[in-house]
C-alpha cells in the first residue's frame, strides 16, 4: 500500500519504461531477423529508415504528450481526433502567416471548453470530450460540406512536417521541443506537481491549497494545443487537410501513454515512458507492414501486445478493503 503515495521519480515507475524499452529492442531484433531471412538486408537498423519512422511517429508523439497530461489527472480526452482535423482545416483555410496561430487557437479553445466542462460542470471527461468531438466533427463537416477541402498547407507547415534539417526531419525537432516542454512542466514546475497531486486525490490536493479546477483546465488546454499542433503538422505532411485525418491517432495515443507506464486512473507515470510507448507502437506498426501483415493480423497482434505488456506491469492492486 505504501506504493500508492510514491513520488513520480521512484523506482516502481521506471519498471514499465525499462520493460517497454526492452520490448522495442525485441521488435527491432525480430524484424531484422525477418528481413535478413527474406530480403538479406536489415533496413530496420538503417538510420534513414528509423528517422523516417520517427518522423511519422512525431505526430503520434505530440498527441500522446498532450494526452498524458490529461490521463495523469485520471481523465481522458476523446476530442483529439476532430481537434486535430479542425485545427488542420482552419489552418489551411486561413492560410498565410496566420495559418499556424489559427490552428493553435482552435486547440486552445477546445481545451478551454473541455476543461470548463470537466472541471467546473464536473461532467465525466469521457462523455464531455466525446460530445465535444462530435460537435467539432459536425462543425467541420458543415464548414467543408463533407468534401476534402481544396486549400493546401502553407510552406511553413510543409517545412515543419516534411522537410529535413541537418539530415534529420524537422518534425522530429518539433516533437523533441514539445517533449522537452512537457517534461519540464511535469518535473520542474508547480503546475506539474499539482497535476500529479490532483491525479492522486483531488480532494486532498484541494485541501492543500491547489486550485485543482485550474489544473484540470490547464491540462486540457495543453492536450488541445498538442492535438492542434499534431493536426497542423499532419496537414503539412500530406500537403492538405482531409476528413477524419485524426481518427487513427486517438487509440494509439492512449495506448502509448498507458504502455509507457502512466496509470490510467491518474497520479502516476513518467514522461519518458510515453516517448518509449510511442516509439514502441510506431516500430511495431512498421515491422508489421514490412512483414506485409494483412490488416487483420495487425489488429490482433496490436491488441495482444497491449494486453501482454499490461499483464506484465499494468496490473492494479487487489481489492482488499
Amino acid at each position: 500500500m505504501a506504493n500508492d503515495l510514491t513520488l513520480p521519480r521512484l523506482k516502481s515507475d521506471d519498471l514499465p519504461i525499462v520493460i517497454s524499452a526492452g520490448f522495442v529492442l525485441v521488435i527491432l531484433a525480430l524484424g531484422s531477423i525477418y528481413t535478413v531471412a527474406t530480403l538479406g538486408t536489415m533496413p530496420l537498423l538503417s538510420p534513414n529508415y528509423l528517422l523516417t519512422q520517427l518522423q511519422t511517429g512525431a505526430f503520434l508523439g505530440i498527441v500522446a504528450a498532450g494526452m498524458m497530461m490529461v490521463i495523469l489527472l485520471g481523465h481522458i480526452d476523446l476530442s483529439v481526433p476532430w481537434t486535430m482535423t479542425a485545427a488542420a482545416m482552419m489552418a489551411t483555410t486561413v492560410g498565410g502567416p496566420a495559418a499556424i496561430p489559427t490552428g493553435l487557437a482552435i486547440g486552445l479553445l477546445v481545451g478551454l471548453f473541455n476543461g470548463f466542462g470537466v472541471a467546473y460542470l464536473r461532467i465525466p471527461s469521457m462523455i464531455f470530450t466525446l460530445g465535444v468531438d462530435s460537435v467539432m466533427r459536425g462543425l467541420m463537416i458543415a464548414h467543408t460540406g463533407g468534401f476534402a477541402p481544396q486549400d493546401s498547407a502553407t510552406p511553413l507547415m510543409r517545412y515543419l512536417a516534411a522537410e529535413k534539417l541537418l539530415g534529420i526531419p524537422v518534425a522530429i525537432f518539433v516533437w523533441a521541443a514539445v517533449s522537452i516542454v512537457i517534461a519540464a512542466i511535469l518535473s520542474r514546475t508547480a503546475f506539474g506537481k499539482a497535476i500529479y497531486a490532483t491525479g492522486n486525490r483531488e480532494a486532498a490536493s484541494y485541501l492543500s491549497g491547489i486550485r485543482t479546477r485550474w489544473v484540470i483546465v490547464g491540462a486540457f488546454v495543453i492536450s488541445g494545443l498538442c492535438a492542434a499542433l499534431a493536426g497542423i503538422l499532419l496537414a503539412g505532411y500530406s500537403a492538405k487537410a482531409y476528413q477524419g485525418m485524426g481518427n487513427a491517432y486517438l487509440l494509439p495515443a492512449i495506448a502509448a501513454v498507458v504502455i509507457g507506464g502512466t496509470h490510467i486512473l491518474g497520479g502516476r507515470g513518467r514522461f519518458i515512458g510515453t516517448v518509449v510507448g510511442v516509439i514502441l507502437i510506431v516500430l511495431l506498426n512498421s515491422v508489421l507492414s514490412i512483414m506485409q501483415m494483412p490488416e487483420a493480423g495487425r489488429q490482433i497482434i496490436y491488441g495482444l501486445v497491449i494486453i501482454v505488456m499490461l499483464l506484465v506491469y499494468g496490473r492494479t492492486a487487489k481489492v482488499t478493503s
Binding site: A255, I264, P294, E295, I300, Y302, L304, I306, L311, K318
Partner: peptide
C-alpha cells in the same frame, strides 16, 4: 489479469476487429 477495463477492452476490441477482418 486485474487490468483497467477501459484499456483492456481497447486492446481486446482491436483483436475482435482483427478476427472480423
Amino acid at each position: 489479469g486485474r487490468l483497467q477495463p477501459i484499456i483492456a477492452t481497447l486492446a481486446t476490441g482491436a483483436v475482435a476487429i482483427g478476427l472480423a477482418l
